[in-house]
């Protein structure tokens, strides 16, 4: 088995809004080929941690490093290696579904973007909608398009906020199998999830965030239970 390298290192991450502490001294280390699932009640800070990890939010204190470098959202290297599926994804109003995926695959310099795009479209069941503009898609279809944007490009770390949202049972099963396949090839995954099926399918390490958001890796639970 190949040596696992540290992909993500979060040290003493604290996030406050005014006096209100959302996340307090959060620590996390993720290696390649590993999946980490952040769980916890609504408002426990899962999405905030993810947003700090991808650089969308700045931590009040602490440090987030990806691939040994401080996370900088505007850095080309970070954008190349880290794929994200969080709620702030927007789409070009005048580009069709397939054109979005084609553009992303080409921007990442893939050798044969056409076949990959076709394959991913088929996987996310958006072939009939391929010519549609994003504004006409249902919320579930938009979610699948968001997942597709992360699948048509190379990535070493995948950060997702509740990827199971608006997916049916079959969709969750497909996503679990797809991500597990990629983990075997070295992809690291950090996600917030409320879906035990997905978490268990990935064999993800679970980090539960409390209401006071005081979390460390020692709180890892062996198995995710409802």
């Amino acid at each position: 088995m190949a040596k696992r390298e540290t992909v993500l290192k979060v040290t003493d991450l604290t996030k406050k809004y005014g006096d209100h502490v959302i996340v307090d001294r959060f620590n996390l280390t993720v290696s390649s080929g590993e999946a980490v699932a952040l769980t916890g009640r609504n408002g426990s800070g899962k999405s905030t941690v993810l947003r700090c990890i991808i650089g969308a939010d700045r931590p009040s204190e602490g440090r987030v490093e990806a691939f040994g470098r401080k996370v900088m959202e505007t850095d080309a290297g970070f954008r190349r290696d880290v794929a994200t599926v969080v709620d702030d994804l927007d789409f070009f109003p005048d580009l069709s579904v397939v054109e979005h995926l084609d553009l992303l695959a080409r921007a990442h310099g893939l050798a044969d973007p056409d076949s990959l795009v076709d394959e991913v479209l088929d996987e996310v069941q958006l072939v009939p909608q391929s010519a549609q503009l994003p504004g006409t898609l249902s919320s579930g279809q938009r979610r699948r398009l968001a997942l597709a944007t992360a699948l048509v490009r190379p990535r070493k770390l995948l950060v997702m906020d509740e990827p199971e949202q608006r997916l049916d049972v079959e969709g969750v099963a497909w996503l679990g199998a797809r991500l597990k396949h990629e983990m075997n090839k070295g992809l690291a995954i950090v996600m917030a999830s409320h879906e035990p099926t997905l978490v268990n399918a990935l064999g993800a390490r679970i980090v539960r965030l409390g209401s006071a958001a005081e979390v460390s890796e020692s709180q890892v639970e062996p198995e995710y239970e409802l």
Binding site: I54, A56, E73, T74, D75, A76, R79, R80, V82, A83, T84, V86, D87, D88, L89, D90, F91, F92, P93, L104, A107, H108, G109, T149, A150, R153
Partner: peptide
């Protein structure tokens, strides 16, 4: 689109300037 929300910009493997 890329200025108003940063989600899509993050998906491209290049700096904001590029």
């Amino acid at each position: 689109v890329l200025s108003r929300t940063r989600g899509l910009a993050r998906a491209f493997p290049m700096s904001t300037s590029e």
